[in-house]
């Protein structure tokens, strides 16, 4: 998750490249992220396995490959599936990628566009942070981003499959605290995102908007309204 991304312009560094040693370097730097991705994958699989078959959970991890969005839709995963709400939730939770990609873009200007787009398709929060750190130090190697994907995707998908097989064994999700697991993932993520007092007002606005939407509106509007309230509060605070 980016915080206050400055548009750092590449300067005095080597031209962008895509090398094998970059891939290895990216893979090495990603090891700590892989280690934590596995239990999170198992946790997602177990929580998902309680509401959908393991095949669906594993397909989701393979194709969507975005932990927060995947956890976020679990609460909405009831038949008949609310397709619009599910898609919209994934869009809102992942909107941060737009800012992250925009920050990374200048460092790879000059490489073939389809290489950059192919690697962007697998960009995670961790992969972005590692790549951003390396390119700002002058190592503009797209292979680093590739390495982060190689070290995270199989772990996330494999962890999901294992967790989903456990979770589908007829667990009572509440008895095993899986609802608290999902809420806890988001609560701890939010705390990890805290960057200073500027975040407090937007978060309070999100709480207020969500509470209002839950009380007075049907369906799942609270996600859109909570997100919009925080976005607007963040804008308003800076405009003063």
């Amino acid at each position: 998750m980016p915080d206050a991304i400055q548009q750092v312009e590449p300067q005095n560094s080597a031209p962008p490249s895509f090398t094998r040693s970059g891939v290895w370097h990216g893979m090495r730097l990603t090891v700590p992220f892989s280690i934590s991705a596995f239990p999170f994958g198992v946790a997602f699989g177990a929580a998902a396995g309680a509401v959908m078959p393991p095949g669906d959970a594993t397909l989701m991890s393979a194709l969507v490959f975005a932990g927060s969005a995947q956890f976020a839709v679990l609460g909405l995963w009831t038949m008949p599936l609310p397709l619009v709400a599910l898609t919209l939730t994934a869009l809102l939770v992942n909107a941060r990628h737009v800012v992250m990609g925009a920050a990374l873009h200048p460092f790879f200007a000059g490489l073939p566009r389809r290489w950059v787009m192919l690697m962007a398709a697998g960009m995670t929060d961790g992969g972005w942070a590692i790549t951003m750190q390396e390119v700002t130090r002058g190592r503009r190697d797209l292979g680093i981003l590739a390495g982060t994907i190689i070290m995270q995707w199989p772990v996330w998908v494999g962890g999901t499959l294992l967790g989903a097989l456990i979770g589908s064994a007829g667990l009572d999700p509440k008895r095993w605290g899986l609802d608290v697991l999902i809420a806890g993932v988001f609560a701890t993520t939010v705390i990890g995102l805290y960057r200073g007092r500027g975040d407090i007002l937007p978060w309070l606005a999100a709480i207020g908007g969500t509470a209002g939407a839950l009380l007075w509106l049907p369906g799942n509007w609270y996600i859109l309204i909570g997100g919009a309230c925080a976005g607007l509060a963040g804008l308003w605070r800076h405009d003063k």
Partner: peptide, 30 residues
Amino acid sequence: RFLRHMAGGVLVAIVTAAAMNGDEAMWAGL
């Protein structure tokens, strides 16, 4: 700024909803 704060707000919304719809065990655990 809008996108960045919205991303956090969506997560806050999910936690808020879980708390409002949850039982005492959810409140204590959270």
